[in-house]
């Protein structure tokens, strides 16, 4: 039993967010992620062409290739393919830029849905005793199926498309969020301040929202960030394997899948979207790392 200080501790608690924004990982990862988001939003204005436009006379060209095409009004104009073209003559640069849209949409949607659904189920599991073991056995079962395999299986059952892909990626993530929330709830409900709230007659729903729920915010922001990164990766994998979003949609995975055939001669078809993908995932993972270290040191153990 340690004894406790008599003098009031010096108050050094700065605003949490100012500490967060001082963290180098947050700054670095966050800025890159933000830049990518801006690029995705501004895609049409960044000297891009229609990413689905096919130019049969400019197939498999190296970066920097310039072609003359007719525009909508029939005028001949010079077009520069900054990153070359694929085997159908589509502009890789435009496809990579537009690809950011799909990736970020998938990443963010999956993170939001998974966190929200997981939060609700996790709170129920953590507080309703008789439901707990039923829910957790089911979650164990879901977790026993390796994440990517489950996603693959789920997409294979539906006609490929963005919503199907999102759902297929969300489902394997939900049990992880449920476990996290449940463990927070279980540890917090043992805290003396929660027990004090019980003895002053706080009703259970208020108890949950006032004393328990706020404790899940920090770990969930962190977890959500990692889910976002992971979802972007899984979407790219699905597209790359040819079972994700339809091939004509510009996603980084699709561009790479398309580039496989001519990889030996034209490695840039895989290289550029690969770099974009790795950069996005790296940025978001770093953001998550930084957030975890600053927001949530208690849960720094988890990845």
């Amino acid at each position: 039993m340690a004894t406790i200080d008599a003098a009031p501790p010096v108050s050094r608690r700065r605003s949490v967010w100012s500490t967060v924004l001082r963290n180098p990982s947050v700054l670095f990862g966050g800025s890159i992620a933000l830049i990518m988001l801006i690029i995705a939003i501004l895609a049409p204005f960044l000297d891009t062409r229609d990413p689905a436009e096919i130019n049969p006379s400019a197939r498999n060209q190296k970066p920097g290739y310039t072609a003359t095409v007719r525009d909508d009004e029939g005028k001949r104009i010079q077009v520069k393919y900054h990153l070359g073209t694929d085997s159908l003559g589509r502009d890789i640069y435009s496809r990579v830029i537009y690809g950011a849209r799909v990736s970020l949409i998938v990443g963010i949607t999956v993170a939001v849905i998974a966190v929200f659904v997981g939060l609700i189920i996790g709170m129920i599991a953590g507080y309703v005793r008789w439901l707990d073991s039923i829910i957790m056995r089911f979650m164990d079962g879901l977790m026993a199926i390796p994440e990517i395999l489950l996603a693959i299986a789920l997409v294979s059952l539906s006609r490929a498309g963005l919503p199907a892909v999102v759902i297929a990626i969300v489902i394997p993530q939900v049990p992880r969020v449920v476990r996290l929330v449940r463990s927070v709830v279980l540890s917090i409900r043992e805290e003396p301040y929660v027990e004090s709230a019980i003895t002053v007659g706080t009703p259970t729903p208020t108890l949950l929202f006032r004393h328990v729920l706020p404790n899940t915010t920090a770990p969930l922001i962190v977890q959500g960030t990692f889910i976002c990164a992971s979802a972007i990766l899984v979407e790219a994998i699905l597209s790359f394997l040819g079972i994700g979003i339809p091939p004509e949609v510009p996603t980084w995975g699709n561009i790479m899948a398309e580039g496989r055939t001519y990889f030996r001669i034209l490695p840039h078809n895989i290289l550029y979207p690969g770099i974009a993908l790795a950069l996005a995932v790296l940025a978001i993972n770093m953001l998550g790392d930084g957030l975890r270290d600053t927001l949530d040191p208690r849960f720094a153990k988890r990845f």
């Binding site: 994998i237 790359f240 790479m256 990889f263 895989i270 690969g274 993908l277 790795a278 995932v281 770093m286």
Partner: peptide
């Protein structure tokens, strides 16, 4: 961080 951010297939092709 770099290692688990680069997708497996990108590593493979590199």
């Amino acid at each position: 961080v770099l290692g688990f951010s680069i997708p497996v297939f990108v590593v493979g092709y590199i």
